[in-house]
């Protein structure tokens, strides 16, 4: 019988790892003479929220932090009072930017708002042509959460119309509900674990500001490959 070479490499690598690990390694911080405890007894993850940037507990504090972060990231953030206001705002942006074609997906937040624009639409729900989406002026999507701590938008391939919608058009508009605002990154991962207990989407993405690069002389330029603009409308 011929051994499966792929299987062999797996076993070879695991074998080398096990052999290497027969010698124990010094534990982190040992060389600085810091008080240390066996790593197996520690629960580093439990303390993560205490080390990360501080987030207030009230909605007002969290929304203010999200706004500050979004502004710093050069994303537009608007807190609106009603669905009607959201639709009106979207129409205003569409007119100001001269949108001619819109990419979106079916969702209770996007359906009415996009229909109200009265523009040709590419919907990703049942597949789409990449060139067709590329020619859209905007991608309008829902999301899973807004994260106050970092100003990030959490999307997945299930919640936000697939993988390309949030990165291929030159402008990404996120529609969110205020209940979707969460405090910090640990809460975001807790939310993912609960929401997708029966199976994770194939893509989970934390979008933090519009696409950016500093590759030329470390000078910030927006819209390197993904969207040049990120607008978050929260109702």
């Amino acid at each position: 019988m011929v051994a499966n070479p792929k299987m062999n490499e797996r076993e070879n690598i695991l074998g080398r790892i096990r052999e290497a690990l027969s010698l124990p390694a010094p534990i982190p911080g040992a060389h600085h003479g810091e008080p240390s405890h066996p790593v197996s007894e520690c629960d580093a993850a439990a303390h993560i929220p205490e080390w990360l940037p501080r987030v207030g507990v009230t909605f007002e504090e969290q929304i203010a932090l999200f706004r500050t972060n979004a502004t710093e990231l050069k994303a537009d953030f608007l807190l609106l009072d009603s669905q009607e206001e959201l639709v009106a705002k979207l129409r205003e942006i569409a007119a100001a930017e001269g949108w001619k074609k819109v990419a979106t997906h079916s969702h209770e937040l996007t359906d009415d708002a996009c229909a109200a624009l009265g523009l040709p639409m590419v919907r990703t729900d049942n597949g789409y042509e990449a060139r067709d989406m590329e020619s859209c002026d905007v991608g309008i999507s829902a999301c899973d959460a807004l994260i106050a701590q970092t100003g990030s938008v959490l999307v997945t391939s299930q919640s936000a119309g697939g993988r390309a919608l949030s990165v291929l058009p030159p402008h990404h508009v996120v529609l969110a509900r205020r209940e979707q605002l969460i405090a910090d990154l640990p809460s975001a991962f807790a939310l993912l674990k609960t929401k997708y207990a029966s199976g994770y989407p194939s893509l989970i993405s934390f979008i933090t500001g519009p696409s950016r690069t500093g590759d030329i002389e470390r000078i910030l330029v927006l819209g390197a490959h993904g969207p040049k603009k990120l607008t978050i409308l929260c109702v």
Partner: peptide, 17 residues
């Protein structure tokens, strides 16, 4: 800007990938 976790190829019901 983007921190993305990829857990597989396009899954049933997903738009693309």
């Amino acid at each position: 800007g983007y921190n993305t976790m990829y857990g597989g190829p396009r899954q049933p019901g997903e738009a693309d990938g």
